[in-house]
Amino acid sequence: MSGTSMIARRRSRTLATVSTLFLITWLIVAAFPFLWTVWGSFKVESDFFSRESWLNALFGVYTEMQTGAPFTGDGYYGAWITRDFWRAVVNTAIVTLCVTVISLTIGTLGGYALARSGHRYAFWILIAALVFRAMPHITLVSGYLLPFFELNIWGHLATSIVVLVAINQPFTLWMLHSFFLSIPKDLDESAMVDGCTRFQAFRWVVIPVMWPGVITTGLFSFLLAYNDFAVTAMLLSQDNQTMVPKISSFLGSIQEQGNVMFAVAAVVSATAPLFLLVMFFQRQIVSGLTAGAVKG
């Protein structure tokens, strides 16, 4: 073995070590905040926000003192039962489910048309969608409020659902459009020659092949509705609040009362579904991110 290849090998081993260390650091940076908060949510406030030592949060000194056990579900009880967080959870479930289903329904139709039409206006619709996609949501909300008050539709879940579906459309159209482009045109054309109308070809032949794309896009629609703060915070009345605005309203009222742990518990509760989502749909999320990138 010659000297240069020894050097090259040693250098690549250093490189591997550096990369591994770098990745482990990143892993900690990415994951630790979540693990820490989940752990801390089962403590009392004087442990999680300890004035004495951060170790208290680890061992739960005050938690043991106040509740008799190293872990407590007080935060969760307080948030879910005392402060009616469960209602926000139900609202979130309704909103995200409706938004995802409606977005996908009208988005697949539109995305299919955009992918299969060679006309110029299809291109312009896509460009318009790109501009719409860039609009900060809060600026749109400032356009909604006054008309919605006047029409008396402010505060309802249905209003927020429709608004979120619309805000979601540009992104949904782009993503589904690029998924549809990857399905050969021959497929729907042979279906039409075989005797289908355009819609039948879409429904019977294209959609069965499109499921992976639809699921991926659905995940992103879900995330948009689930993560939204601007729209739901401004357009929902107190009773109809979803999780995220509810948590933000906790901050205003609870911090003074010394019940930050309610907010911590609520935050962990709201993170759990996202955690599960990544666990089960990791591949789809990755493919969705890259589908937009590679073709867009």
Partner: peptide, 25 residues
Amino acid sequence: KTFLAFILPAVIAMLLFIALPIVSV
């Protein structure tokens, strides 16, 4: 005609809740 039928719901949603709010703003 087919194109319009397919795209109409999405376009209406975007016009009503993105384009119109911009006018309202």
